[in-house]
Amino acid sequence: MKDRKLRVMVAKPGLDGHDRGARVIARAFRDAGFEVVYTGLHQTPEEIVQAAIQEDVDMIGLSSLAGAHIYLFRRVVELLREKGIDDIVVCGGGIIPEEDIPKLKKIGIREIFTPGTKLEDIVQWVKENVKPRIEGVKCKVK
């Protein structure tokens, strides 16, 4: 078997309509060799999680520039937990105040990238922290 390809999702939860940043990130991930599923704007946490399951991604990157990040990011993590999914890394980025970062990490968001972060640093973080699922669907005969 060849190496598995990393599949990541870039998603825009909530009513925030600014996706330039999300697109730049998606592009950087593409150039790093990842398969990037982009959901488009105005997604509910439910839609994001369902799409992430159908797409079998290894990571969800949430982008928020409109202030509702605590509620929206938390909901994504909760939904994953409710569905018993523990192998999808969730990280976030956007206009997020310093004081919210510890709260978000406590909720289960693995990392937060704020404006000014270099693209190569984000890509490097993903390469180090997100590993594609190794094991295949269990299919040994007997």
Binding site: A26, F29, D31, G33, V36, T39, G40, Q54
Partner: peptide, 24 residues
Amino acid sequence: SGGAILGDRIRMQRHSLDDGVFIR
């Protein structure tokens, strides 16, 4: 790069919560 941007879902996301639809 071997990477890809998969953007077809953007137009179909309204079906993502429908159990009768599977999009990949």
